[in-house]
Design a protein around this nucleic acid. Structure first.
Length: 431
RNA sequence: GCGGCCGUAGCUCAAGUGGUAGAGCACCUGACUGUGGAUCAGGUGGUUACGGGUUCGAGUCCCGUCGGUCGCCCCA
């Protein structure tokens, strides 16, 4: 007996039912992206480690990327995120690309982390970026893309919300509190943790990193100010644009949203479920130094990423995970006996040529077994071609949903199939 | 990388203080040899994650490994 080989830790197998959900997510992501005029692109899954060395949170590469030597000894990285690849691709063709540029992508990423609920080592991510515009209205558009996706998958504003803040605004506010510039990245990360750890440990960590009692108090007060955004011209414009884009109900200001990554320079945002029991569903923001880091001229940009694992958990939790059609085909042609096997195969071919999706039972076994199979795999109509039908040039059709059964001349049988199946007889499966 | 909890049939779960591994669902067969879903009867299925240890005896206690999960870290 061969030893059982385990899958690599933190990876997932996609059985047809899992694949159906992944494809469902992909279809909605694509539909929303295209609604807003974004173009699909992709990069390599393997990248040189140097691409990540210069930028994007040191830790992401040093501690969380899959890095290994290839056969020649070069260090190869399984991409842990897409933004550096995007930057490289844009820098390479900077002179021929025409801005503003709207690109989106959906694909696999890898991070060598401890797998947990909503977090694996191999996951899929939707990336949406708008390059070449430095206005808060562009940021609002990205948020609208995310919100439109939520609306499209039936998640309501009562269930998910996109929270927004501005690093520029927070910088000013921290100035007033007297937090030195050198401590900003650490303080940002502390703010990011506010609702993830207990108030006591949060305060302890704050004091630990060198903030005074007074500053901690001021900081806590600051993070309570839900109308802080009114002090920011940038955010006032942002919210007016969000309103115009028709997604205001999904968007709210929150002073504790700051994002962990270092390269964000302005507005930042993340989506959370209303009950706050899951990780961030999507996260993004403005980065104005992107392309310069990989050798191009600086281009302002704004973008976000949404992983497939958390959104799946959220959909499940709110009962919005769709019932997907997993049937291999809407029609099953049975095989009455050995003698009628090839006639059944020919019938299946004729049905396919008429535009139907058809599965034919692969061997002559009891009809009850074939009907049971049809029932189990979700076939809608079973076709029987036995001695009687063969003799009279007819076909027997049984609709598995209603139980209705008819025997009709071939031509009429095809018409009946079309009537019964309607749209679902066509070439594309699901939903 | 660190700490807590968990790991029994394909699935969901049972098995007082250690004493011969069980149920429901699913699956297979039959009642029903040209017809599924319902019902009834019967049946297959487990080295109790893996490897050691303690014991007359371990699913149960101890150690280790692997996997899952929760928290730290980080993040989608």
């Amino acid at each position: 007996m061969a030893q059982r080989i385990r899958p690599v830790k933190g990876t997932r197998d996609f059985y047809p039912e899992d694949m159906a959900l992944r494809q469902w997510l992909y279809r909605h992501m694509r539909a929303v992206s295209e609604q807003f005029g974004y173009q699909e692109y992709d990069g390599p899954f393997l990248e040189p480690i140097e691409l990540y060395a210069a930028k994007s949170g040191e830790e992401l590469v040093k501690e969380q990327a899959f890095v290994f030597p290839d056969r020649s000894g070069d260090l190869i990285t399984l991409r842990p995120e897409l933004t550096p690849t995007l930057a490289r691709m844009v820098a390479q063709r900077q002179k021929q690309l025409y801005f503003p540029l709207r690109w989106w992508s959906f694909g696999p990423f890898w991070r060598y982390e401890r797998p947990q609920r909503g977090r694996g080592r191999e996951f899929f991510q939707w990336n949406v970026d708008l390059l070449g515009v430095n206005r808060p209205e562009a940021d609002a558009e990205l948020v609208a893309v995310g919100a439109t996706f939520f609306r499209r998958v039936n998640l309501t504003p009562q269930e998910v919300r996109i929270y927004v803040n501005s690093r520029r605004l927070m910088d000013q506010a921290l100035d007033r509190i007297g937090v030195p510039a050198g401590m900003r990245p650490a303080v940002f990360r502390l703010i990011d943790r506010l609702d993830k750890i207990s108030p006591e440990t949060w305060e302890a960590q704050a004091l630990d990193m060198g903030l005074s009692q007074e500053q901690v108090k001021d900081l806590k007060a600051l993070l309570e100010q839900r109308d802080l955004w009114k002090q920011s011209e940038e955010l006032r414009r942002f919210f007016r644009a969000v309103e115009a884009l028709g997604v205001a109900e999904y968007v709210a200001y929150h002073p504790a949203i700051i994002r962990g990554l270092d390269y964000y320079t302005g507005i930042v945002f993340e989506a959370r479920d209303a009950q706050g029991q899951f990780r961030a569903i999507l996260g993004g923001g403005r980065y104005d130094n992107l392309v310069a880091d990989v050798g191009g001229d600086p281009i302002p940009g704004v973008g976000f990423a949404m992983g497939d694992m958390v959104i799946t958990l959220v959909l499940e939790h709110y009962g919005k995970r769709p019932q997907l059609d997993l049937a291999p085909a809407p029609i099953l042609v049975t095989v009455f006996d050995e003698e009628h096997l090839l006639p059944s195969y020919r019938l299946a071919r004729d049905l396919r040529e008429a535009g139907f999706r058809v599965v034919v039972y692969p061997e002559p076994v009891r009809l009850s077994k074939q009907f049971k199979y049809a029932n189990r795999v979700g076939v809608q109509v079973v076709v029987v071609l036995g001695p009687d039908e063969a003799a009279q040039g007819t076909l027997t059709l049984k609709h598995m949903g209603t139980g209705e059964q008819v025997t009709l001349p071939r031509k009429e049988a095809f018409a009946r199939l079309r009537a019964w199946l309607g749209e679902s007889s066509g070439p594309s499966p699901q939903e």
